[in-house]
Design a protein around this nucleic acid. Structure first.
Length: 493
RNA sequence: GCCCCCAUCGUCUAGUGGCCCAGGACGUGGCCCUCUCAAGGCCAAAACGGGGGUUCGAAACCCCCUGGGGGCACCA
C-alpha cells in the first residue's frame, strides 16, 4: 500500500454528471480511502459562459448516491479552500505573475478577432492552427505599462521553441513530444480567470494532490501541464489518464443517444437517471469499477468496501472501454440478491407508496423474499407485486381460460378450486399446493394448466411470483373472492 | 491537415517470452430443475487485426500498415 494519497475529483459544472466522471471519482475515492488519504472535490467553474444551473448540485447528488463521500469540497470546506475555482482568482493571478517574472509567460494583446482570422488563414494554408507569437517578444516593461493603462490582455505561456518534453503517465509510461508542437497557450484570460491549463497545475500543487486522475482527453495537453509545473518550480503529482468510454457497439465515444441496451430499451449514461430507473448504487459502482480495472483472481463482484481494499492503480487498463448496459443488469441482479430482505424491503417500499399503494415496510416484508430472486431492477417490483396490495385485480380472459377446457368449464373448475381450497385447514403454501394438484389430477389437467388459471385469477398477471406462496400472503378470503370473481368474469365474456 | 493515445471472444477483461492449439465474466445457444417468470446447475459456440523482424521459443518485445479513439479556443 502506498502512503496517504490526496486525490481530487475536479469536474466542471457545464452539463450533466455522466458515468465517465463517476468512474473517475470512484477511482479517486478508492485510492484515497485505501491509503487513508483524502478525497477532495474541486469545482472547475472558470468558464462562466458554459456554466449550467443545477450542474454542480447534480455532481454532489451523484457522488452521494454512489456513496463516494468527500473530505474536502465546496460544501464542507477544508484546509485548502476555496474549492470552487471561480473563488480563487487571486491565487491564479499571483502565479501568473510569478511566471511572468520568471520569463515563462508573457502578456498578449492580440484581439479575439485577429486570433480567429489567424487560425482561419492557417487552416487555409493547411498549417496546424496555433498562436503566431506576435506578442511573444514584446519588451516586458512596455507590456506591463500597456496593461497598467488598462489595455485588455491575456497571459500566455512561453513554450520553449526547441527541444522535447517528456511527460510520464502511470498507465502509458513516458510520452515525449517536440516542444515546437506545443502552442503558447493562454493561461490567464482577459477577465482575470485562469484557463484549465493553469488552474489544474496551480490547484493540484496548492492542494497537495499526490495523484491526478483524469480523462484521456487531457493527454494532448499533458506535456504543457508538465512544463507549467516545472516553470513554477514544482514537482508533479503522479498523472493517471483514464481512457474514455465508448458506445455499447464499441464504435464511437459514448453519447447520450446511444445509451440503449441490446434489447433496445433506453438506458442512461447519467447516474441519477440510473437511480431513477431502479438500479442500485452498489451495482453501478461495481460495474463502473470493472470498466478499466480488473482484479487478479477473476473475482468480479465487489462491494464498495471490498473495492477500497483491493483497488490498485497498476491494474488499470489504458484502452478505451465500450459501455455494456447488459452487464449492469447482471450486477444489479447480483447485488439485489445479496441485500438482506430487510434492506431490500426498505428500498422497495417507497416505490409502492409512490404508486398510491398503502404499503409499509412491515406489510411488504413478507413479499420481499418472493421478489428478491426475480427482480432485475427495483422498479420492476410494483408491476410484479402490486397485486398483493390492490383491492381487486383485473385479469385478461386469455390469462384465465384453460384452452383445453374452454370458458365455461374453466369457470366451473375455478369455482370448484375455491370451494376445495376454502376447506383447507391451514392457509399455507404447503397445505394449498397438494389440494390444487389433486384437483388438477381429478380433472385430467396438468398442474401447470390449473395453476396458470389460478395465477391469472389471484394475481391478475400472466407472470408472477410463485403461486402458492403468493396465495398464502394474499390470504384466504381475498384469494377465494378473486377465484370467484374470475369465474364470474369468464362467464360474463 | 498536424499532434497524441489505444489494439486478446459481440462486450468487459486475464495474460508481463515457454504454464496458452489463450483463462474468467456478461451476453448468446442447448440441456437440467420447474406452477409462470426468474434464480441456480451443466455443456457449447466465440478472440490474440495484418505484415515484417528479435528469439531455441512470441498474444506477450521492436518496426511498419490498418483500424479505433482523443486533441488542435481568452472551453473544460
Amino acid at each position: 500500500m502506498t502512503s496517504a494519497a490526496r486525490v481530487r475529483f475536479a469536474p466542471s459544472p457545464t452539463g450533466r454528471t455522466h458515468i465517465g466522471g463517476a468512474r473517475t471519482a470512484l477511482y479517486d475515492y478508492l485510492l484515497a480511502r485505501q491509503t487513508g488519504g483524502q478525497f477532495i472535490l474541486r469545482i472547475e467553474d472558470t468558464d462562466a459562459k458554459r456554466r449550467v444551473p443545477g450542474a454542480e448540485q447534480e455532481i454532489l447528488d451523484s457522488l452521494r448516491w454512489l456513496g463516494l463521500d468527500w473530505d474536502e469540497g465546496p460544501d464542507v470546506g477544508g484546509p485548502c479552500g476555496p474549492y470552487r475555482q471561480s473563488e480563487r482568482r487571486s491565487v491564479y493571478h499571483e502565479h501568473a505573475q510569478s511566471l511572468l517574472r520568471g520569463g515563462h509567460a508573457y502578456y498578449c494583446f492580440c484581439s479575439p478577432e485577429r486570433l480567429t482570422q489567424m487560425r482561419q488563414d492557417q487552416q487555409k494554408r493547411k498549417e496546424p492552427p496555433r498562436y503566431d507569437g506576435r506578442c511573444r517578444d514584446l519588451v516586458p516593461t512596455e507590456a506591463q505599462a500597456r496593461v497598467e493603462q488598462g489595455e485588455s490582455a491575456v497571459i500566455r505561456f512561453r513554450t520553449p521553441r526547441e527541444g522535447t518534453t517528456t511527460a510520464v503517465d502511470l498507465l502509458r509510461g513516458p510520452i515525449t513530444v517536440e516542444n515546437a508542437t506545443i502552442d503558447d497557450y493562454v493561461l490567464l484570460k482577459s477577465d482575470g480567470l485562469p484557463v484549465y491549463h493553469l488552474a489544474v497545475v496551480v490547484d493540484d500543487h496548492l492542494m497537495g494532490i499526490t495523484h491526478a486522475i483524469r480523462g484521456s482527453e487531457w493527454l494532448p495537453t499533458f506535456p504543457l501541464h508538465v512544463l507549467v509545473a516545472r516553470a513554477l518550480g514544482w514537482s508533479e503529482p503522479v498523472w493517471v489518464h483514464l481512457s474514455v468510454f465508448l458506445n455499447p457497439s464499441g464504435k464511437g465515444k459514448m453519447s447520450k443517444r446511444h445509451a440503449v441496451d441490446s434489447k433496445g430499451s433506453a438506458l442512461s449514461i447519467y447516474p441519477l437517471d440510473l437511480r431513477d430507473l431502479g438500479y442500485l448504487p452498489e451495482a453501478v459502482v461495481n460495474w463502473l469499477a470493472l470498466m478499466g480495472w480488473s482484479y487478479d483472481d477473476h473475482t468480479e463482484v465487489f462491494s464498495l468496501s471490498e473495492l477500497v481494499e483491493r483497488f490498485s492503480l497498476d491494474r488499470l487498463h489504458p484502452s478505451p472501454a465500450a459501455v455494456n448496459f447488459t452487464k449492469l443488469d447482471h450486477f444489479n441482479g447480483v447485488h439485489l440478491r445479496s441485500l438482506s430482505p430487510d434492506d431490500l424491503t426498505r428500498r422497495l417500499t417507497p416505490l409502492f407508496v409512490a404508486q398510491g399503494l398503502a404499503v409499509t415496510n412491515d406489510s411488504l416484508r413478507p413479499v420481499t423474499p418472493l421478489l428478491q430472486e426475480r427482480l432485475r431492477t427495483l422498479d420492476e417490483a410494483v408491476p410484479m407485486a402490486g397485486f398483493f396490495f390492490r383491492d381487486e385485480v383485473h385479469p385478461e380472459p386469455e390469462d384465465l381460460i384453460i384452452e383445453a377446457l374452454g370458458a365455461s368449464a374453466t369457470a366451473e373448475v375455478l369455482r370448484t378450486t375455491a370451494a376445495r381450497l376454502g376447506d383447507a385447514p391451514e392457509w399455507t403454501a404447503e397445505a394449498l399446493e397438494p389440494l390444487a394438484r389433486s384437483l388438477a389430477e381429478e380433472r385430467g389437467l396438468k398442474p401447470g394448466q390449473l395453476f396458470g388459471a389460478m395465477r391469472g385469477a389471484i394475481t391478475g398477471q400472466r407472470v408472477s411470483p410463485p403461486l402458492f406462496e403468493s396465495m398464502e400472503i394474499v390470504g384466504r378470503s381475498v384469494c377465494l373472492d378473486r377465484l370467484e370473481a374470475a369465474a364470474r368474469r369468464i362467464n360474463a365474456t
